[in-house]
Amino acid sequence: MTDASIPFLDVQGITQLVREDLDLRWKGVLTHGRFIGGPEVETFEARFAEYCESRHCVGVANGTDALELVLAALGIGPGDEVIVPANTFVATVEAVCAVGARPRFVDVEPDTLEIDTDAAAAAVGPRTAAVMAVHMFGQMADVDRLVPLAQRHGLAIVEDAAQAHGARFGGRRAGSVGVAAGFSFYPGKNLGALGDAGAVVSSDEALVARIRQLANHGRASSGRHLHELRGRNSRLDTLQAAVLAVKLRSLDADNDRRRWAMRRYRERLPAGCLPLAEHPRAEPVHHLAVVQVADRAAATAALDAAGIGWGLHYPVPCHRQPAFVEFADEPLPTTELAAQRILSLPMSPTLTVAQIGRVCQVLDQATGPDRRPP
């Protein structure tokens, strides 16, 4: 990449903003030597639970584990169905399959690409146990409608908040709506670790205790040599907890910068690039800057030539993936059409006016006003 290149995500720049604090925290962990279960883990769990306006947090190894542990702790398994929007990362579906349940794919809203509540309602059946409220691209799903739906049918709402650290809907923070929420701290997330990491957030004390036990080999609280449950090893490392505690302090400010960047994109993008809509009650954090274009090949070729990073989230929907095609009950036209058109533009809290202008200029030349998605 050249000096004029624009990265898709400026991981290095984000890290450098807090480098001195990170160095201090790492030295502290190296000094006390408690690399598993050190005091930094408990500190981060408490602070992140408070940030999410919830009561409890359990640090785990990654976001996929977080979702699987929630489902397992709820007792969801073989014979159960979990409603999942087809427009999501495969980890959402993997978690459902890992506990032996069946994912029931539903379509999404055409303007936001979030779960279609009417489609979810139509998918409820006698075996439905839960709904995955996936907060895609940094915008929360319409929980104003999903929560009453779940309450009517006695279903659990599990939030997949891997892309929504700090987002709100109707004033409620991601992680405070469902029975529990799974977060990923993969390095590219709004709150990213320096490796894999994740967390479960919930206000259900009994559920949290069971998740904590399952994540630690099923150990009993009465002694480390007694294993009451068939658990697993999924723990948040002390070093990663220390990193996350540092980055959490600047998360709101970083999210504000992402909102600013997305506003600039909306002002300057050509008609041929249509940004996803924002629900009027939503306060997104723009994990990704997703647009829809009629000719994606032309747009990506132009971005490549200009040294501008881009991504696709996601070009093959989950219900069309070979691993999950057996669960594809019917076509999902909105998801399938969007998969052909979506394009993720550079998005970082370090993004500048000049960089946004350059991205929009290149896209204007590649797409033009006469190539707006129908």
Rank of each mutant, 00 (worst) to 15 (best):
R219M: 07
G125I: 11
P110A: 13
R212N: 14
D204I: 04
R224F: 03
A242V: 07
L155F: 03
L191N: 02
G218Y: 03
R210N: 04
M136S: 02
V106A: 11
R210I: 02
R152A: 04
S221Q: 12
D160N: 12
V131F: 06
A174H: 09
A123W: 03
I115Y: 07
D111Q: 12
H225M: 01
V106E: 11
V131K: 07
G192Q: 03
A209P: 10
G138S: 06
I157T: 12
F183V: 11
Q213G: 03
I115V: 11
A133Q: 05
S203L: 00
T238N: 08
M136V: 02
V108T: 14
R127A: 01
S203D: 09
M136Q: 04
H135F: 02
M136G: 11
G195T: 01
R172E: 02
D196Q: 13
L149F: 10
P126D: 15
V201C: 01
G138E: 02
G171I: 07
A220M: 13
S202L: 03
Y186V: 03
L149P: 05
A161Q: 04
L194H: 13
S202T: 07
A215L: 01
T238F: 01
L229S: 05
Q151S: 15
G138W: 10
A181K: 13
N216T: 00
I157V: 14
R235W: 15
A180D: 10
H227Y: 10
R224Y: 01
G166A: 06
A242D: 15
T117I: 07
R173M: 14
R173G: 07
E114N: 15
A161R: 00
V177E: 14
F183D: 08
L194M: 04
F183C: 11
L146F: 09
A130E: 12
A242W: 09
G166Q: 00
G154S: 09
L113Q: 15
A130F: 03
D160R: 06
S222R: 14
G182R: 10
Y186C: 10
G218P: 04
Q139I: 00
G166L: 00
V208I: 10
L236D: 06
N190D: 08
N233C: 14
A181R: 13
L214H: 11
A209K: 12
H165V: 05
L146D: 03
E114P: 06
A164K: 05
R172Y: 04
Y186G: 05
A121S: 14
R224K: 09
D142P: 11
S184M: 13
N216A: 09
A130D: 01
Q240A: 06
L229R: 08
P110S: 06
R145W: 09
S176V: 03
E228D: 15
G154H: 06
G125H: 14
D196N: 00
A121W: 00
D144R: 14
G170C: 15
H225K: 12
A199K: 09
V208E: 04
R145D: 05
A156C: 06
R232W: 11
L113P: 10
T128N: 00
A181W: 03
